[in-house]
Design a protein around this nucleic acid. Structure first.
Lengths: 206, 206
DNA sequence: ACAAAAGTGTTTTCACTACACCCATGG
DNA sequence: CCATGGGTGTAGTGAAAACACTTTTGT
């Protein structure tokens, strides 16, 4: 795995995000802190490589995954680094491995190797931008969710508080929501109606 | 340049667009029709490789260039294909080479090898999308231009006619325009005021 | 009873649309 | 003088913003 013949490989890197109170990304403790990386195998697709990288590091499967950007690979000893971002609700992420944990994107400069900082930053920007026109917020929620939960996702990714009534009007108008018959009782307050995402294809890569 | 050791290389592909009456892309006659392709050299950056590919095929330099998407490279005999799109005003493109010409994006299916069709299509979509929030239209114009020319670019990329007065209001409000003192006399009608792009960085990759 | 989140309408504001005429020039 | 594209303002409409109270529950 070194100087056989110039730089041999393409790497994929994955920034996995979830929301637990705040937006967090998955970080490996190694060195200064790193994102999961995979080396492309012969015959392997890029996205498959990214999923494998994530699975190898964490055991996580079946997350929403989208290409972010492709970087020069010099400093990492590769020809190119294809970066992805992944989204998943925190309940689906049973991370109980040493050296794997969550971190705050605002602290990438102290928590992450330099080459990987830009990936987390750009992913956050992309997320905030896409929030407006693509149904990515639902990727952070379970199959059924309340409007309060959905609003929290929008507020956290968009980094600003939203008006509850305007938000609900907007969501109902968006035609992504399907109301279910059930409610969730969750504490000392009125139960919340549960919704699910209308089952058209949730997003298109690109 | 063949089977020494599995698939050795990363390729870059460039779809160069310009506007001459219509939106057109640069096409090489070879085979069914191809886009300029470059193989990444050791130590070379991806964007540099894309620029070199374009330069080698056409002699064109110094165009606006932005990454589009990275594809699996199997069918092209590469590990990955990093696609770029480039924009330039047609005056700056002195193409007088055999086997190099312009083509209509609407006819990619007949004019272009299958692997390259998707690149032109996605680039067109990205262009139409970015038009709304990024100052890419100016990349098709000379340094100084008229509002009529600018509107034509918007109409061609956005594929719809626009109201002249609303368009001008919108552009003036956008703060990208700087009015110059000069006008252009161009035919049997009133001369048109010339504008230039306000000199902040024109766009950010991503 | 009270604390805590769920749920609900109306008014205002602002950006976008539609729309028609005069201006300056070259031939 | 006429054909051609350059240039201008106003009224209407629809989407988003601002804003406060009642409902239902667990403790």
């Amino acid at each position: 795995m070194n100087d056989t013949n110039a730089m041999p490989a393409i790497h994929t890197v994955v920034a996995l995000f979830t929301i637990r109170e705040r937006l967090e990304f998955l970080r490996l403790d190694a060195e200064r802190g790193r994102l999961p990386v995979g080396a492309l195998l012969p015959g392997e697709g890029l996205e498959a490589c990214a999923r494998r990288a994530l699975w190898t590091a964490t055991g996580i499967e079946d997350v929403f995954l989208e290409q972010l950007y492709t970087f020069d690979g010099e400093q990492a000893g590769a020809q190119a680094i294809v970066a992805y971002y992944a989204l998943a609700p925190c309940e689906r992420l049973p991370i109980r491995r040493p050296g794997v944990g969550w971190a705050d994107p605002a602290e990438v400069t102290t928590l992450l190797a330099e080459e990987h900082q830009i990936i987390v930053q750009r992913a956050c920007e992309r997320l905030a931008g896409k929030l407006e026109y693509a149904p990515i917020a639902y990727q952070f929620l379970a199959e059924r969710f309340t409007l309060g939960e959905l609003q929290a996702v929008y507020e956290i990714i968009g980094r600003q508080a939203l008006d509850k009534r305007n938000f609900r009007r907007r969501m109902h108008a968006s035609a992504h929501l399907v109301e279910t018959r059930d409610v969730r009782r969750n504490g000392p307050h009125r139960p919340a109606r549960l919704y699910r995402l209308r089952d058209t294809q949730p997003a298109v890569a690109g």
